[in-house]
Design a protein around this nucleic acid. Structure first.
Lengths: 198, 198, 198, 198
DNA sequence: TCATAAACGAGACGGTACGTCGTGTCTTCGG
DNA sequence: CCGAAGACACGACGTACCGTCTCGTTTATGA
C-alpha cells in the first residue's frame, strides 16, 4: 500500500531536499548516496524510499522546489533582442558556475538512465522554463520582431541547445561573449527580413 | 609498474570492446558493469583495469573504434544546404534509434561524472566529427553559400545543439521533419543576404 | 505514565494472544514479528507495546493463558510408576508435535536472550507444571514408593531434563518407547531398595 | 556458482571465527551481528556470506574449532563414579560461567530456528562429546560398574539432560553440589544391584 | 447526559541490520 | 610466466522490523 501524503512530515521532507542540494554542492554527484542524504538530513533511509523512488527523484524535487521559488517568466522590455541577450547571458552564467551546474549535472545523469524520471523532469522542471521563453517570443512575434513562419519551440531549442551542447561536451568556454554569439545567430535566424541589419 | 603495451593481447582488447557494445545494446547502461563485460568477453577483470580506467574508458574506446571505421568527412555536393540536410537527417536518425543512442547515452553519463574522460571524449570522439562539419561549412563559405562573418564553431553547435537538447530532454520527437526544421533555421542564420529567399 | 489496566480492551488482548499463537503455528518463529501480530490481530502496534515489553512477553502470556486453562495437577492413581509413565508419555508427545512445540521453541529463544522474561517464564509457566509433578512424587514418597533421601526437585529434572535435551539437540526420536525408557531409568534411581525388581 | 575452498583465505577465516567468539564473550548474543563480526575481523561482509550461511553457521564453526582443539575423550581412572563426578562437575562449571555459556546460548538460539544448522551442531559439535561419555560408560559396563541392560545413550541424556534443563530454564543454581546430586541420581539408576550401597 | 480523557487503529518516523551487488585490488593456478 | 578466474575489503543498495511518536476515532466513565 502506498504511503498517505496527509501524514507526511514536512520537516523531514525539507531536510531531505536541503541535504541533497548541500551534498551535491559540497561533494558532487559521485559522492551523493541515499545513505548520505539520510544521514545529513537526520532521517531514516526508509523515509526517503517511502516518498521517492531513489536519489534521482529527490534531486528532481529539490530542483523543482528551488525553481518554483522565483517568478519564472521572462522579462519583457519590448525589445526581444535585448531580453534574449539578458536571458541567455544569465543561463550561460548558471551553467558556468560549478555549484549551480552540479545539480543540473546530477539530474541529467539520473534522467539519462530513468525514462520515468526524464518525463517528470521535462514536465515539472524544464517545460515551465522553456514555455516562459516561448511566451516571450510569442509576444515578440505579435509586435513584428519575430518572423511569423518559424516554429517557436524550435527557436527555443536554437537558443538553449548550443548551450547544453557546449556545457555537456566541453567544446568551449561558457562566457558572456559566447552567450551573445548564440543570441546573435538565433536572432539572425528569426528576425524578419525588413528589420535585418546585415 | 604500468603495463607494457607491446605485450598487450589484441584478441582480448577486441573482445572487451565488442562485449561492451553488445551489452549496451542488449541490456542498457544500467546493467553494464565491468564484471559483466569481463564475463562476456571471456576475460579477467584485471585485464580490463590494466588497460582502462574503468567502464567509461572502455565505452569511449569502443566508440572511437567504431567511429574511426568510416571516412569521417562530410560529403560535398557543392550545395551546403543539401549536404547539411542529409547530414542532420542522418544524425537525428541515429539519436532516434534506441540501439545506437544507447552508447551515446552511456558515454554521456560517464563523461558527466569524470572530467578526464570528458576531455578524451571531446578530443578523440567528438572533435573529429564536429571538425568534419566545420570543414564542409568552410568550403561553403569559400563559395559564398555561408556568411563570412559567422563563427563556424558556433554554427556547428547551432546544428547539433538543438538535437542534443531534444534527445537529452525528450522535449519532442526526433523525426526527419524535425531535422529539416533545424537545418532551415540554421540556414536562415548563416545564408548571406543575397541568397535568401524569405 | 503507565497505562491504566482498567480501561484495557479485552477484545484486543485476546486477539493479540490468538494471533501470536496462530502465526507461530502457521509460519514459525522466524516469521513472527510484532508488526505481523498486530496486523493479524487487527490492532495497532502501540497497543502491543503498551501492554507487553515485546513479542517474547506476548508469547509468554499466550502460553500462560493456554496452560492455565486446564487443571494442572498430575493425576494420582496410587501408583507412582504408572502415573509418571502417563505423564511423560504425554509430555514427549507434546514435544514431538511440531505445532505444539513451536510455541515452546519460541519462548525458549526469547528467554535465552532476555533474563527478565526467563524469570517470568520460570515462575508463571514452568514452576506450576514442575511443582505439580513434585507434588505427585511427594505423595508417592509418603506411601513408600519413592526413596525418602532423594531431592524431589532433582528427580523432576531427571524426568524432564532428558526430554528437553533430546528435543533441543535432536539427538534422537521423541517416541513413546523413548518416554518409557526415561521413566524406567528415573524409577530405577528413586525406587526404594525393597521394591526393586532387578 | 559456489566458491572455491582451495582459494579461501585462511587468515580471514581465523579472524572471523575469533571475532565472533570475542564479540559473544564481550557483548553477548543480542549485539552479535554479521556486520560487527566483519568489522571486528577486518573483513568484508561478503567474505562471511561467501563461506557461511549466516552468523549461526559462523558460531558453530567457531565452536567446533575450539572443541576440536582438545582431546575430547573422557578420562578413565577405572572408577566410573569418580570419572562421571569429575566430568559433570566440569560441565556444570562451564554452564555456570557466563563467558563460556554465552556461546552455548548463542548456538542454541540459532539451532532453534534453523533445522539444517541444528543437524550440523548435533553431528559436528555435540555427538563427539556425547559419544566420548558413552565410551566411558561402555568401558564401565565391561568391568561390571554399569548395569548391562540400560541404553547407554539414555544414560548420557540422564546426565546432561538435567543440566541443560536447569541452565535453560533457570530452575536452580549450577553448583558443584548440584553436579554431585545429578551424578548420584544417575549412578543410582545404573549401578548393578550387587554394588549398591543404599 | 454528555465532555473529556484514555485507549485504540493506523501508520510515519529515526534507526539498525539484513543479504546482495559492484568496485578496484590482490592472489592463485593452469596452459 | 602470463592471464582467466575469482577472492578480497569496501561501501551502497533497497527491504524488513524495531520501538517511539503522532494522528484522528471510538468508548466509557465521572462531573
Amino acid at each position: 500500500m502506498p504511503a498517505d501524503p496527509a501524514r507526511r512530515n514536512e520537516r523531514s521532507r525539507r531536510a531531505i531536499l536541503a541535504a541533497a542540494l548541500e551534498l551535491l554542492a559540497e561533494t558532487g554527484y559521485a559522492d551523493l548516496t541515499v545513505e548520505r542524504i539520510a544521514a545529513r538530513a537526520g532521517v531514516g533511509k526508509q523515509t526517503i524510499y517511502r516518498w521517492w523512488r531513489g536519489k534521482g527523484a529527490v534531486i528532481l524535487d529539490a530542483l523543482v522546489d528551488a525553481a518554483t521559488a522565483g517568478d519564472g517568466s521572462v522579462p519583457d522590455t519590448g525589445d526581444v533582442a535585448a531580453d534574449l541577450r539578458a536571458l541567455i547571458r544569465a543561463t550561460v552564467a548558471e551553467f558556468a558556475d560549478p555549484r549551480l551546474s552540479a545539480t543540473t549535472r546530477a539530474i541529467t545523469i539520473e534522467t539519462l538512465s530513468d525514462d520515468a524520471l526524464a518525463e517528470q523532469a521535462r514536465d515539472r522542471l524544464l517545460r515551465p522554463q522553456l514555455d516562459a521563453v516561448r511566451s516571450r517570443l510569442e509576444a515578440g512575434r505579435r509586435v513584428g520582431q519575430v518572423r511569423p513562419d518559424v516554429d517557436l519551440d524550435q527557436v527555443v531549442e536554437l537558443l538553449f541547445g548550443p548551450i547544453y551542447h557546449r556545457w555537456l561536451l566541453r567544446t568551449g568556454p561558457l562566457t558572456e561573449a559566447y552567450a551573445d554569439g548564440v543570441v546573435d545567430l538565433a536572432l539572425a535566424a528569426i528576425t524578419p527580413a525588413g528589420l535585418r541589419q546585415g
